[in-house]
């Protein structure tokens, strides 16, 4: 009788754990493609702007960054229509909010830096990109993403102060590749 209780208790806990994990996987399954999309755009834009700045010597090519959201958001909107309907979860909502807040901060300080007060833009953007990546990794319980985000944020911020040239754009290429990696990890985990 005691053994039956123990077996039932074990089976029940296993059922709870499996159900929670399956449900979590289904809920997060939509997110992967957005990481791949924004990561790919970041890689393409950082390389393109680096190439143009490097060959012409004109830093005004950085204004092309503002084209990235203009391309990314309409594509995101189209992809959202194809999303599988899943319930809202705490983890999914937190990841979504974190990246929305990152976008607002990145665009706002870029506009301020271009129009009002010059500042070390790459330093600030790489730092908050790394922080947001770390936060995403913590929510997804992925050490690869946490460590990648930390190296990108802290190492990248330090590197921007050391490089101080067009080559610092290549840090964003690394950031983009990390975003694509997050997307691929999520896609693989949620299969």
């Amino acid at each position: 009788m005691e053994l039956n209780n123990e077996m039932t208790a074990q089976k029940s806990l296993q059922l709870i754990s499996e159900t929670l994990n399956n449900s979590r996987r289904s809920i997060l399954s939509n997110g992967a493609k957005y990481f791949i999309l924004w990561g790919s755009l970041l890689v393409i834009f950082s390389l393109a702007i680096y190439f143009l700045w490097h060959t012409t010597g004109n830093p005004r090519w950085n204004l092309l960054w503002f084209v990235m959201p203009a391309i990314g958001f309409p594509i995101s909107f189209c992809l959202r229509k194809k999303d599988v309907h899943v319930p809202e979860s705490f983890v999914g909502n937190m990841i979504s909010h974190a990246w929305k807040i990152y976008c607002v901060f990145a665009v706002s300080i870029s506009v301020i830096a271009v129009l009002l007060v010059p500042m070390f833009l790459s330093f600030a953007i790489v730092l908050i990109l790394g922080m947001t990546m770390c936060f995403t990794g913590a929510l997804l319980k992925s050490w690869i993403i946490i460590i990648g985000g930390f190296i990108l944020g802290v190492g990248g911020a330090a590197a921007t102060m050391l490089i101080m040239s067009d080559a610092e754009l290549l840090l964003f290429t690394v950031g983009g590749l990390l975003l694509v990696a997050i997307g691929l990890i999520e896609k693989h985990q949620n299969k």
Binding site: I16, T19, L20, S23, E88, S89
Partner: peptide, 12 residues
């Protein structure tokens, strides 16, 4: 128990 486990991880 399955229903409760699903709902425990989501808002609704």
């Amino acid at each position: 128990l399955g229903i409760m486990s699903i709902l425990a991880g989501v808002e609704s």
